[in-house]
Design a protein around this nucleic acid. Structure first.
Lengths: 299, 299
DNA sequence: ATATTTCAGAAACGTCTGTTTCAACAACTT
DNA sequence: AAGTTGTTGAAACAGACGTTTCTGAAATAT
């Protein structure tokens, strides 16, 4: 609808197969010795900023280095690029080489080499992109409420249900009043009426959400209870209802989603909350541990 | 509006202390409901990108979303920015926090920066060591039985229970007769008596195993049913009873164990089994997908 | 039906970007 | 000393960028 011919639009270049190119850093190192003064100053600025050339404009770099813009053009020519923009695209491509998106599940290459390496890569990539997007402050607030709330309610359906169960299990290690709702055969309404602002609701809502979720969250919010939402980027209207939203990537290169990142966050929250719970929580844990030792005569 | 407030812009803004600003994603979530069509399309493109907004130009985003450039300007105004560039800078600033600069685990500052980097390292380390120890052939055999068995029984207690649940959920995507035992309030004995060698039993037994497990496995073996055991290195007598043993690491640097590796293996088994199930399994999945599409009118 | 409001995209617009040109300059070479 | 080579930033330049304006279309109200 924007171009006259109506057919495929001009996309910015997407990661193709050309990740074989030498990285910008590598190119700089190769020629570092022979670089003239001003270009070297520029190169150092680039190297000092780990990874992310693509986030800067050439003029920003030159300003940081205190050289003229002409120096930038010359440097990138010398490094083998036809323009600064070409370097920018390469840099971006590099960084998104772990991007879970636009990785169409090519049937042919999916299971190559036993698939275990691919799996490892997939999982770690998802973890990295997920964790790097998280905001530490938001996490801290959630942790605070998990420790301080009178009761912690966990909500999760389908896929997300068992993540909520895992989380509950972890939290129970050091605090009580952690409830997974709805329990078997219970309806959720009964709990909703009972909520107060001193509680906290933790909702796990990964892909394949049920449509009732929207109504549930609205109810919770109306009762004034803070909501922490653990979801993926495909959630659209839910985050607007939550007090804090923690987003993780779940779509990898495989037909089934990965829950690794979501669980990692739950683990992190558990650990942090455990620390923050302090002596009280520790006592709770030790009590349980001692019980276990008595019972676990052998495995 | 007022592009001219008199102050000349000199240096690109460097990360100061103002990480207090709301993130772009958060702003989008807040207003998502009230966004007009074209701006919403744009917002979705932004949300879908794992990478940074700062790596893109506004015109690239609009091209990806298939909207006019004007839509971008309008969107960013609506989100509370004075210009696209302002949003770009905020996004870049954000990125610095989760920077690839490895947070060396100094003993003193264990929880600095939220400890997210430490978590990432821990999880990926566990994954790598776990997966590297696995035997592809053994996995293949397990996959074969999961696909070919008349019924798949999943067993898991405590911690391991929810992993079994996850696995069940995945397997149900492409085959029926996947049973998690014991169900609520059921005793496991009833099922054991029913087992045949054409079934397969998949046991998840991570740390903190209950002592009844040994007896259960013995019974299963005596009935001639093949057993796949997913456990950790601390299991002592259990592997001797299993037909195949898959071992994963769970102990990391944190007080709570990680289930990431165990889940990764379950995912892998699911994917492989799905492939091996071939047309039959795919038809099953598509049938389910279609049902979902009917039900998921919105999320 | 008409009026009102909201929205989208095309086009005009000024600004800033990155490139190129050019003259000044320094460091060697002969 | 004059010539050669290489480097530098200012200035000129074309082009792309993001913003604004405007007109028509669509949705909603009256």
């Amino acid at each position: 609808m924007d171009t006259s011919d109506g057919s495929p639009k001009k996309f910015p270049e997407m990661p193709k197969g050309k990740s074989r190119e030498k990285s910008i850093e590598a190119r700089i190192h190769e020629q570092y010795e022979s670089l003239p003064d001003s270009e070297r100053k520029l190169a150092e600025v680039i190297l000092d900023f780990p990874g992310d050339l693509s986030a800067f404009k050439a003029s920003e770099l030159t300003a940081l280095a205190g050289v003229s813009k002409a120096a930038a053009t010359r440097l990138f020519h010398r490094l083998g690029f036809q323009s600064f923009d070409e370097a920018r695209l390469l840099s971006r491509e590099r960084r998104e080489w772990g991007s879970p998106l636009y990785m169409e599940s090519k049937p042919g290459t999916a299971t190559s080499s036993g698939g275990l390496n691919a799996l490892l890569k997939d999982e770690t990539d998802l973890l990295r992109t997920s964790l790097s997007k998280l905001d530490a402050n938001r996490l801290d607030e959630v942790v605070g409420h998990i420790v301080g709330a009178r009761r912690v309610f966990l909500i999760g359906f389908r896929n997300s249900r068992f993540i909520a169960e895992y989380f509950r299990w972890q939290l129970l290690q050091f605090r009580g009043d952690v409830l997974l709702i709805p329990g078997n055969g219970e309806t959720i309404g009964e709990f909703l009426a009972d909520l107060t602002p001193t509680d906290v609701v933790f909702v796990v809502a990964l892909r394949r959400r049920i449509k009732e979720l929207h109504g549930i969250l609205t109810s919770v919010r109306d009762r004034g209870t803070p909501i922490a939402l653990l979801t993926d980027p495909t959630a659209r209207r839910l985050p607007g209802l939550a007090t804090w939203t923690l987003t993780v990537e779940t779509r990898g290169a495989f037909p089934f989603d990965s829950c690794g990142p979501a669980l990692a966050i739950c683990r992190h929250l558990s650990v942090q909350a455990f620390h923050k719970a302090g002596r009280r929580g520790r006592a709770h844990l030790e009590r349980i541990e001692r019980q276990h030792e008595v019972l676990d005569t052998f495995n």
